[in-house]
Amino acid sequence: MSGQIISLQGWFETPPGRYLLAWEQAQFDQAVADVFGYHALQLGVPAVDALRTNRMPHRWLALSEPDASSRAAALVTDFAALPFQANSLDLVVLPHTLELSPDPHTTLREVERVLVPEGRVVICGLNPASLWGMRQRRSLLYRRLGMGESYLPEAASLIGYWRMRDWLRLLGFEVESGRFGIYRPAARSDAWLERSRWLDRAGERWWPIFGAAYFLVAVKRVRGMRLLSAEWRRAAQRATASVPVAGRVGRDTPRTHKEGNGS
């Protein structure tokens, strides 16, 4: 069989794709339900309705190119140059967006620009350090030899979990939560995936970092700075100055004058 390239949309219709899609949809539903604000944006991958449980009044789906086969998108744009003002969005979700981007770091920097302080970014990606990632590397080798097809959808590159956390930290994000999922082996049939269902629970307990997918929620932190005037020195001096306290002369207080003897 000659080498074949499978798109993400087509891959989501395969048994492992449906398995991954169900897990990711559940994670997004839980993560965005209680994120409040006014404007939320999903970048790419319309197969995942990442904002369906969110209650913001303005929610949009943006695609990098027109796609008549998917649900309607509000805009088509370059993800590395979003048509939004700085500090204007409260939530941005990235379901495999960075993996499919030709310049993922620039895309993430653009997300940081448009998010308001304390805004959130939700990221889902495939873990190269997993059974699925190992299967993908092997299938890519076969493809170079003109044999077989890719197991995972074609992507620019799979970005590891810890590498993603480093990128977020460099851009001023604070990771609020992170988790792994998808521990069943890299099978292509529903039957094999169903037989290995017990591995989901075992994997979460015994080898959590080797899940085939990871999920991250990060918050944009803006460190504040307060300008001080020259008055702060005088204010500090006033605050530390001693204050005389009036007290009454008691039995144990020495007298400072002699009492008269009546003469």
Rank of each mutant, 00 (worst) to 15 (best):
Y142S: 15
S150H: 01
S196F: 12
W167M: 07
A187N: 06
L170G: 11
Y151E: 04
E149R: 12
I159W: 00
R179S: 11
R195W: 15
R197H: 13
G160R: 06
L158C: 02
L152G: 01
R143L: 14
E174W: 01
S139T: 15
L168W: 02
R137A: 11
L168Y: 03
R144P: 02
R184Y: 00
D190A: 14
M164Y: 03
S177V: 00
F173A: 10
E154W: 08
A186C: 01
R197K: 15
R197N: 13
M164H: 08
F173G: 12
G172V: 05
G172N: 10
S177Y: 05
Y183N: 05
L141G: 01
W198M: 07
E176P: 04
G181F: 07
E176G: 06
A191I: 12
S157L: 04
W162N: 15
S139G: 02
S139I: 03
W198V: 11
R135Y: 02
A156G: 05
A187F: 15
Y161R: 11
L145V: 00
L158R: 15
S177N: 10
A155T: 14
Q136L: 04
F180W: 12
L168R: 02
W162V: 11
M134V: 12
G160D: 15
P153H: 06
R169Q: 13
E149H: 10
R184C: 05
R165L: 13
G146K: 12
A191E: 15
L171C: 01
R143C: 10
W162D: 13
R195Q: 14
Y161S: 11
G172C: 08
E194V: 01
M164C: 14
R143A: 09
S157C: 06
R165Q: 13
W167H: 00
L170F: 03
R144Y: 00
R188T: 12
L145Q: 11
L171G: 04
R135T: 08
L193S: 05
E176M: 13
L158K: 04
S177A: 13
Y151P: 06
E174Y: 08
R137V: 03
P185F: 03
W192S: 10
R195A: 09
Y161K: 09
R195T: 03
A156Q: 14
E149F: 03
L171D: 00
L158W: 10
Y151V: 08
M147G: 04
L158M: 14
L140P: 00
E149D: 08
F180R: 01
G133V: 05
R184F: 03
E194A: 11
D166A: 14
F173N: 08
L158T: 04
E149M: 01
L171S: 03
R179P: 03
D190S: 15
R163N: 13
P185A: 09
G148T: 03
F180I: 02
L171E: 10
D166C: 06
S177W: 05
P185N: 06
R143K: 14
Y183M: 05
F173Q: 12
L168Q: 07
L199C: 07
R169K: 12
W162C: 07
G146C: 09
E176I: 14
G178H: 05
V175E: 08
